[in-house]
Amino acid sequence: MLKKIGATVLAAAAIAVTFTGTAQAEYNPKCPSGVTQIGSTKILKWRTETVASVKQFKGCNKNWAYVWVWDTWLAKHKEPFEISAGVSTRISESSVDYVKTWNKQELWSSGADTLKECTRAGGGVWNSTFSAGDWTDERC
Rank of each mutant, 00 (worst) to 15 (best):
I5K: 13
G6K: 07
T8Q: 12
L10W: 00
L10D: 09
A11C: 05
A11T: 14
A13R: 03
A13M: 14
I15W: 11
V17W: 08
V17P: 00
T18G: 05
T18N: 13
T18I: 01
F19Y: 13
G21L: 13
T22G: 05
T22Q: 13
A23C: 00
A23K: 15
A23T: 13
Q24T: 09
Q24P: 00
A25Y: 08
E26V: 08
E26T: 12
E26A: 09
Y27E: 13
N28S: 10
P29W: 05
P29Y: 06
K30M: 11
C31I: 03
P32K: 12
G34K: 08
V35F: 03
V35N: 12
V35R: 05
T36S: 15
Q37I: 03
I38L: 10
I38S: 09
G39M: 05
S40V: 01
S40P: 01
K42D: 01
K42P: 01
K42S: 05
K42R: 13
I43C: 00
L44P: 02
L44Y: 03
K45V: 06
K45R: 15
W46R: 01
R47S: 14
T48W: 06
E49D: 15
E49F: 10
V51E: 03
V51R: 08
V51F: 02
V51S: 08
V51H: 07
A52V: 02
A52L: 04
S53I: 08
S53T: 14
K55R: 15
K55E: 10
Q56K: 12
F57A: 05
F57T: 01
K58M: 07
C60M: 04
C60F: 07
N61Y: 09
A65L: 05
Y66D: 05
V67R: 08
W68C: 01
W68S: 13
V69A: 10
V69D: 04
D71H: 12
D71W: 09
T72V: 06
W73T: 04
W73P: 02
L74I: 13
L74V: 02
L74E: 10
A75S: 14
A75C: 00
K76I: 01
K76Q: 14
H77F: 07
H77T: 11
E79A: 15
P80Y: 03
F81Q: 04
E82A: 12
E82Y: 09
I83R: 07
S84Y: 14
S84K: 14
S84I: 11
S84P: 00
G86I: 03
G86E: 09
S88I: 10
T89H: 04
R90F: 07
E93R: 14
S94A: 11
S94P: 00
S95D: 13
S95R: 01
S95G: 14
V96A: 02
V96D: 06
V96L: 03
D97R: 07
D97H: 05
D97E: 06
D97Y: 08
Y98V: 04
Y98K: 11
K100S: 15
K100P: 00
K100E: 15
K100L: 10
K100F: 13
K100Y: 14
T101I: 09
W102D: 06
W102Y: 09
Q105I: 00
Q105M: 07
Q105S: 12
L107H: 06
W108K: 05
W108Y: 07
